[in-house]
């Protein structure tokens, strides 16, 4: 457990020192959202309708970008070998990297969501549901992304291929997350979506560390 937090601390420190793409991914999150009003017109009613989905999509792409190098930088310079030889089980390493990723990527996405709601013209009363769906959904995005990110170590290249593999797996989270918001706005209530969304987290928490550590070991083979 002590080692777990040491590793989380190190990863966050690396993000702060600018060694990973995570910071840039947050900037991308802000940038991507601007594309929606610029491409679909600045009609306020339209923007309000698409706001939830647009913010969710920007969040998804921001995670996608930063997940690509979740394991690969440590894999390529041999750090991951050293860490696993230090007596940490691979599953714990995966979980700690996921936690560090969420703290530096998912959490800022949640915290920045009110600002984005503001510029997208989402009504105040729906801010909470957007924040909650992001709060529940982003950890799942990180965990789901861990396995394809680990597979990209085994290939030795990432980028488009990681995205190609990752996006279909992330779609249910996107559908439920933005679905909750539009259901809430249309008056149907987003609770059902929220429950389904929160069910994804424990499942991915169980499956993901196992498959991701298998993928990293495959990379070493």
């Amino acid at each position: 457990m002590r080692l777990f937090f040491k590793l989380v601390y190190r990863d966050i420190n690396l993000v702060i020192k600018g060694a990973s793409d995570t910071g840039a991914a947050i900037l991308f999150y802000l940038l991507a959202i601007i594309m929606f009003p610029l491409s679909s017109g600045t009609d306020t009613n339209l923007l309000t309708t698409i706001a939830g989905g647009a913010i969710w999509m920007a969040a998804l792409f921001a995670s996608l970008l930063s997940l690509d190098r979740l394991f690969r930088s440590d894999f390529e310079d041999g750090s991951l070998e050293q860490i696993v030889l230090s007596g940490m089980s691979m599953e714990i390493i995966v979980l700690s990297k996921c936690l560090a990723h969420w703290l530096t990527n998912g959490l800022p996405i949640v915290l920045l969501s009110p600002i984005l709601s503001l510029i997208m013209g989402l009504d105040y009363e729906y801010w909470w549901i957007l924040a909650i769906t992001l709060l529940i959904g982003t950890p799942s995005l990180t965990l789901i992304g861990a396995t394809p990110a680990a597979l990209s170590c085994a290939i030795g290249k990432g980028g488009v291929l990681t995205a190609l593999v990752l996006l279909p797996l992330m779609l249910p989270v996107l559908i439920l997350g933005s679905g909750a918001i539009s259901a809430e706005i249309s008056g149907l209530g987003g609770k059902g979506h929220l429950y389904a969304l929160s069910a994804i987290f424990p499942i991915s928490l169980l499956v993901s560390p196992f498959l991701a550590s298998r993928s990293i070991r495959l990379g070493w083979e």
Binding site: T147, L151, A154, I155, V165, P168, L169, L211, R214, S215
Partner: peptide, 28 residues
Amino acid sequence: GHIALVRAFEDEYKGARAGAILTLFGAF
């Protein structure tokens, strides 16, 4: 995605096993 992933590996042994991991993940 599976087809693209498996064929991205230079080593087909590794590629097939990576495909197996992805298959399990997508089974949801």
